[in-house]
Design a protein around this nucleic acid. Sequence first.
DNA 1: TAGTGGTCTAGACCACGGC
DNA 2: CCGTGGTCTAGACCACTAC
Lengths: 281, 281
Amino acid sequence: MSCFSPLTSELPFAVRSCDRLKGSQLTRLDPADPQPAYRQIADRLRERILRGELAPGEPLPSESELIAEFAVSRPTIRSALSVLKNEGRVHARQGRGVFVRGVEPRLRRSSDRYSRRDREAGRTPVMVDTTAIGPPKIELLRFAPEPASPAVAGRLALAEGALILLTALRVYTADFVVQTSTAYMPYHLVKDSPVADPGQQPWLGDTIANLASLDVHVDRVREEVVTRASTPQEATDLRLRSGEHVFKIARTMFAAGIPVEVSDIVMAADRYVLAYEFPVE
Amino acid sequence: MSCFSPLTSELPFAVRSCDRLKGSQLTRLDPADPQPAYRQIADRLRERILRGELAPGEPLPSESELIAEFAVSRPTIRSALSVLKNEGRVHARQGRGVFVRGVEPRLRRSSDRYSRRDREAGRTPVMVDTTAIGPPKIELLRFAPEPASPAVAGRLALAEGALILLTALRVYTADFVVQTSTAYMPYHLVKDSPVADPGQQPWLGDTIANLASLDVHVDRVREEVVTRASTPQEATDLRLRSGEHVFKIARTMFAAGIPVEVSDIVMAADRYVLAYEFPVE
DNA sequence: TAGTGGTCTAGACCACGGC
DNA sequence: CCGTGGTCTAGACCACTAC
């Protein structure tokens, strides 16, 4: 397209003179650079973004403009753009263009939320700092006693196959899912109590309050954080595109040194900042 | 590789009937499926991986085999594979093949490392659980007093432009970089002390010990964790491919409620599990 | 040498969005 | 309507690895 240079077939990379380019100068790639063209192009575009030359929300030059600017074929431009997409720096919208992704404010998930003060103020510990987006809605996906898997039994220091109470939740805010959690409690702790009654559960999602009502007092929390690409299921749940990252938190609550609940919490990695504050010594 | 073992078909996961080896049956795509071919193919391959049909370390079928199996062109197969690469589920090695990525054990970075017991045992708090890989080596990149940037001044509750001591470190283990950190301390705390002397610094990387020698006693730590794609600089430092994720930890140390050090710590996200343990109430 | 993945081109058709 | 990005094809050459 454009720029019918007879040099095209002679010189594989660049060096085509093309006087009338629509706005954008021709940008030469460095043939000495061992990096392939699509990486060099991605690097140049990334620089423009990091330097603020292309501000958040702004569109990048269109594919055809980039083809003209760098004098390469469309697939090469698309490879370059896909690098930036995979880095989460831009997102494409069909029919519109490719846009620099803004730094959306992240939800803050703070270890403070386990403090008694917050609980007594009536704040649910499922998440905090919902001030900007309203209170969370909780959807109960499953709630049932089950035999513990070996992994869960190990984490709860139970015999394999012992009964646990499984609670699977999904947390929404303003109709978009922000996290899912799957929690396991030893069934013998909650049996015959309101906590084990799906219709009655008094503090859905608030393990500490639930256990306190049974005179089990959580005094220590451990959270182990990893991040990885989402599975298709998680991507569906959290409305991510497959491949976007999640935080996965394996949480254990202890009462007097005994694990009384473990849970696996999954949330969109780029929507959260995890804040931990703890004493030293 | 494939199908020499008669046991294969008995194993719970390897269900392929392997009569005539990689003749690999033709796998039909669903034309009714609104998903494009490359995604359908990626999904099928992902399933095989998640089901264990393709075990960690094993090669996927080669591109030409996949072309035959799904009856599509090479670029389509390559798009499908690039989806899985970007998810971190496989990695390609030129001239060899595409291999299922194993779950390498992650280094554990635990909040315990700030405890006095560990310090007195002589363990450096820069990282822990180095048992598997030997003690860390610390490279000092920069060590100099500087005027604080507005951001750092804010985090340290100093006036803008106040002097801070900047310490930039890189931590190696067995010759591979595991984390970088940039720390800032109010210069007035350390001025004229051995802590401010590059040649003398007694506990490089151990802020708590350094400050304790000046009678400043850290009693609380806050860490704020985010994850995002690495910048090119970080990718170089940590030997990541551009686009792989990092954890970024913004740490603040407090003594009697006053921030006495802030630091930014960056590490390869898929090499770490961050463990936090803290009391409730 | 044969097979693998890595890069690049040229050209085609489609779906979406705004005018 | 036209321009945008999304998908797909066919074919080429290269660099690396194994044998």
